[in-house]
Amino acid sequence: MKKDVKRKRIVFLIGSMRRGGAERVISILANHYAKINWDVDILTLLDSKNDYKLDNRVNVISIAEEGKSRAKQLPTWLTAIRKYISINKPDRVVSFIARINIITLLSCIGLKQKVLISERNDPRADGRSPIIALATRILYPLAGRVVFQTQWAKECFSKRIQQKSLIIPNPINVELETLKPSKKKEIIAVGRLVEQKNHRLLIRAFKVVHDKFPQYKLYIYGEGHLREELTGLIKELEMEQFVFLPGQISNIHQKMAESEMFVLSSNYEGLSNALLEAMSIGLPVVSTDCAGSNELIRDGENGLIVSKESEKKLVDAISHLITDEILREKVSSGAIADSKNFRKEVVLKQWVNTIESL
């Protein structure tokens, strides 16, 4: 009689499973491990929301005490994570985002647990407090592996941390065969309506572009606390008929396929999923010179890159793509070729090899 083989277990830790780059990567990894018959749990610290299609064998477990401040929830998080690990003894613990990484590593002290953590933004620009920055430097060496999205993010940390780290980019999962390209005189941007994305710069730059090319419209997809302010700016510039904030939509890839170009105006990024998706679709892209983009974009070859917060340079780049069809075709071809390195199956293999080699 065969002895039952104990199923392997993996747990992912994140704030929530709302839409975002880290959350999307977790959804892909969780579904993969469920498919190969691991027990899969996702612990969420902030709320129980989930915006992703997960295998029905994936358990999303909220340990949030909604309504309480994060500071007041900290003891609960530490206790709940430690209790979960002590009882379930997962084969792998995978944590995303600096604050969650810190809490996870603190919870695992003394448990001899295999922990992999991942940084998901620009560590020098994402607004983390000095306490958080110090905690990452003290605690990250306790992890078995540290995953970064870019060389820049990796170099923000000590040699000791870098020695146990590697770079894995974001996976893109665009079903190209289902898209119906119909290039309209539209420019598209995708990103939360927050300071980081600097949509003010894009809206102001587009006003100048529109004065020269009045047939064009701008669509900025995403939600955030700056909606009212950005709506006011659009009204102030008298651009209500030409600049639109449609919110979050489910068919964003189709909207990209219908557009003439994609623009990323961010002050900083980890590595923009939307930028990678636009490139895989073959959209000519313009991006500010932020971390991630400046390692991905070869100016004039697979996109255009401009200085952060330079309205004139952003206007010039957009205008250049509008007027130069040969350049549009060149950067489009370059973008499609380079985006193959970010396909879901390629990046998933890197993650799986990293997780299972711990």
Rank of each mutant, 00 (worst) to 15 (best):
Y33S: 05
A135S: 12
K308W: 00
E356C: 13
K217V: 13
S332E: 12
V208S: 02
I10K: 06
K344Y: 11
Y221A: 04
S118P: 02
V115K: 09
A257M: 08
R160W: 02
S48W: 03
L116Y: 05
R128P: 02
R328S: 12
E229F: 01
S95L: 06
S27T: 10
I336E: 03
R145N: 14
H320C: 09
D316W: 08
N198G: 06
R70E: 12
L166D: 10
V115M: 07
A205I: 11
G303C: 07
Q162P: 05
K330M: 11
L43C: 09
A205G: 15
I85F: 14
M239L: 15
R70Y: 03
R82S: 09
I168Y: 14
S280W: 01
I26E: 06
D316R: 15
K197Y: 00
S250Y: 11
F206S: 11
Q151M: 10
S280V: 13
N121Q: 05
S16Q: 09
K6F: 00
N50I: 09
D289R: 15
V306Y: 05
L29N: 07
R192E: 01
D91C: 01
R298H: 11
K68D: 12
E240S: 13
S86P: 03
N302Q: 02
R124C: 13
L142G: 01
L283N: 08
L43P: 06
A189N: 10
N50K: 03
Q215S: 13
V209T: 02
Q151F: 02
N294I: 06
D126H: 01
L111P: 10
L327K: 15
I102G: 00
R298P: 00
V263T: 12
L176P: 03
I252T: 09
P75E: 08
W351S: 03
V94C: 07
D316V: 14
N59Y: 03
E269M: 08
Q350F: 11
L296V: 12
S259R: 02
S266I: 06
M256I: 11
D338E: 15
S280H: 02
K3R: 07
M261A: 03
R328Y: 01
K340G: 06
V115N: 12
S250H: 13
L237G: 10
V331I: 15
L105I: 06
K185H: 15
L304S: 09
D39E: 14
H320N: 13
L166W: 07
N198A: 15
I117C: 11
L106T: 09
M256N: 11
G282I: 11
V146M: 08
Y268M: 04
A125G: 11
R120G: 04
H199T: 00
E258V: 07
G144I: 01
L176V: 12
I172Q: 06
V58T: 05
S62R: 05
N170R: 04
E175Q: 15
